[in-house]
């Protein structure tokens, strides 16, 4: 695993469409539920504990499905690499990617809101497009060209030579920074204070990512499914607005 490669995938400036999504913050701001640093903090904590954990779990499980059993990681080797550089593209020989479609289905089952499903698939499509240009060995999978975003994170991570834990980290961390930066733009909050919140949540990201990697082989129904009713409701309201600044 290359730390630099992890940074490439986790970078908010990766051209994968994230800047246009607020992770539910635009709706929460309009409803008055998020209006200052304290309410943003509560929002980020709750979102991370629900949608964030789900995203981490499915990114890790997708990455595991494409990179093979944990044993390879445990041995510390660089399994099936094509190319010489650490973190280089990985070959995907003989991997059963039907699991990837099942995981994509699993996110459908965990995302009651049609607006959130559409937003997730739009971001998944954008990330796959970016990954395919950045890591040319990005595999096509049974989840198709518009997978849910966490599945796309897992695919991109696998293509980049990352492991399930890093895939989970990208997913959960990206959810936090996306919401945080939308709040900065919408509320004019002090960006230093907001980034202090992001830093405060870093240990929780690490914990969720490690847990997601440990459970990456579980049956899809047994993966986390924490639901956030107000994220669903907010997303459905947001989708009806005539004017919105963020896509979700």
């Amino acid at each position: 695993m290359s730390l630099s490669t992890l940074l490439v995938l986790a970078d908010g400036r990766l051209p994968a469409g994230a800047h246009a999504h607020s992770g539910g913050v635009e709706a929460a701001v309009a409803a008055g539920r998020v209006h200052d640093l304290a309410t943003l903090r509560s929002f980020l904590v709750g979102r991370t504990a629900t949608a964030g954990e789900v995203a981490a779990a499915f990114a890790a499980a997708t990455c595991r499905a494409l990179t093979g059993p944990q044993l390879q990681d445990a041995l510390g080797g660089s399994p099936d690499r094509r190319g010489d550089e650490p973190g280089g593209p990985r070959a995907f020989a003989g991997v059963d990617s039907d699991r990837v479609r099942e995981l994509d289905d699993g996110i459908d089952a965990r995302t009651a809101s049609p607006a959130l499903r559409a937003a997730s698939r739009a971001q998944g499509r954008a990330l796959l497009r970016a990954a395919a240009r950045i890591w040319p060995t990005t595999p096509s999978t049974t989840a198709g060209k518009q997978p849910h975003h966490p599945v796309a994170v897992g695919i991109a991570a696998a293509a980049a030579g990352l492991r399930p834990r890093e895939a989970a980290l990208v997913a959960v961390y990206g959810g936090i920074t996306g919401s945080a930066s939308a709040a900065v733009r919408l509320l004019g909050l002090d960006p230093y204070a907001v980034h202090a919140l992001v830093a405060e949540l870093a240990p929780e990201c690490d914990r969720l990512a490690a847990r997601a990697a440990d459970r990456a082989d579980l049956p899809v129904d047994d993966l986390p499914a924490g639901s956030a009713i107000l994220l669903d409701i907010g997303a459905e309201q947001h989708a009806t607005w005539e004017v919105r600044l963020f896509a979700s």
Binding site: D108, A109, A112, S113
Partner: peptide
């Protein structure tokens, strides 16, 4: 799909 400020009806996938 429909939504109010505290509830939503959401067709599943």
């Amino acid at each position: 799909p429909t939504a109010t400020s505290t509830g939503a009806t959401m067709p599943l996938a």
